[in-house]
Simulated scan of single mutants.
Amino acid sequence: MAAARNFDAELDAVNAAAELPPDEALPLLRKALNHRSNLIVSRAAKHAGRLHLAVLTDALAEAFYRFMPAAGNPAKTDPQCWAKNEIGKALAALEYQNTELFLAGMKHHQPEPTWGGPSDSAGPLRGACALALVQCREISSSTLLRHLAPLFRDEELPVRVNAARAVEQIGSDAAALMLRLRAELGSDAPELIGACLGGVLRLDGESALPWVSGFLTLGDELSAEAAFVLAEHRSPQAVTLLQTAHDATFNRDFRATLLTAIASTRLPEATDWLLQRVISGAQDSKLAAQALCDAQPPPEIAEQLRANGFPCSGR
């Protein structure tokens, strides 16, 4: 009981440090990073990152390696990877520049027993380290791509998505080409392909719009991802591509998705086109009205929807 009370008191002290000025929190968090408990270390790392205590980067790195496989059984010393996950995120937030640490984190797998069989708790660590590696100034963009490429076959979807985001952050022509290739290969969750499409569009700009629109033709979940990637671009050309896809499909569910994507742009040409479908009594006028209303239109548009028999509160 005494040991439990002492642990609770130490955990409370670490959590309380988050509310202190940085100079007062510093010694408390430095001490906590040396604790044997992965929970206390994880909380200390989280607060160190939030308080932007760059002076603690060396202490964070030391704690990271203390919980890695070379130091023992990580599933026992750091169950659920709590300490390493938070340390990785904190070092990324503090723009730590040690590439070897992030590379070690990107390669780390930590299977742990669960009811459904072994589960890898290190996925968030691999994803966080991938994003952190991009900000390391000493590593070239081509070397970065070589290190990130294997993560596209990681068994954890969030890691693959973070790999796509990390590649996008490199910002080079080669990075855009890698994302294009991964999207063209398909055979993965729509979320990953959508991240690739969005990355290419942000890197290559409007010249990539026709390429992204090519993924609208299937009318499936991937097409829905592509629709919202186009909508996020918020350009008249993107709206036109979405309208063309809408007119070409007979899939009612996908038509509804496209109408929602068009409405989410909130561009005047998108709103006018949807409102005209409502007023003219088009076959999917109810879907168009719902899409407009879900986009929280301005009062004048909401009033026109109500005047045509579609209740809408607007903004």
Rank of each mutant, 00 (worst) to 15 (best):
H47I: 14
R36V: 12
K76G: 03
R36K: 15
Q80F: 13
I40W: 03
S42M: 06
A48D: 09
K46L: 05
A54C: 07
H52F: 10
P69G: 03
P74N: 05
P74R: 09
L51E: 11
T77W: 00
G72Y: 11
H47Y: 09
A59G: 03
L56N: 02
V41K: 06
P79A: 12
T77Y: 00
T77I: 14
Q80M: 14
G49L: 12
A45M: 12
Y65H: 12
P79S: 11
A70E: 15
A48I: 14
V41S: 08
R66H: 06
D78A: 04
L56Q: 04
M68P: 01
A48K: 00
F67G: 02
A70W: 03
A75N: 04
A45I: 12
L39N: 07
A59D: 15
G72L: 09
A71P: 06
Y65C: 01
L53V: 00
L56F: 09
A54G: 15
L51C: 10
N38M: 06
L51F: 05
L51R: 00
Q80R: 11
A71V: 05
D58E: 15
L51S: 04
H47C: 01
A45V: 07
S37E: 05
L60G: 05
P74W: 13
G72S: 06
N73T: 12
H47E: 06
D58K: 11
V55D: 13
F67E: 01
L53R: 08
I40G: 08
A44P: 01
V55L: 07
D78Y: 06
A71I: 03
L51A: 09
A59L: 02
A63G: 03
V41F: 08
L56Y: 08
A61F: 03
H52L: 10
S37P: 01
H47R: 11
H52S: 14
D58H: 13
L53T: 03
L39M: 11
L60P: 04
A54Q: 13
T77R: 02
R50C: 05
N38W: 13
A71S: 15
D78F: 08
R66W: 10
Q80K: 11
A71F: 11
A63N: 04
R43W: 06
F64C: 01
L56W: 09
N38T: 13
G72Q: 03
E62S: 08
L51W: 12
F64S: 02
N73V: 13
G49H: 04
V55Q: 14
A44I: 04
P69K: 08
A44N: 01
Q80D: 10
F64G: 00
A61V: 10
A75T: 14
P79L: 10
L39G: 05
A48V: 15
R36E: 15
P69F: 10
A44C: 02
S37D: 15
R66G: 15
A71N: 15
F64E: 01
I40E: 08
L39T: 13
G72I: 05
S37A: 11
F64P: 00
D58M: 09
T57M: 12
A54I: 02
R50D: 14
Q80Y: 14
L56G: 02
M68T: 04
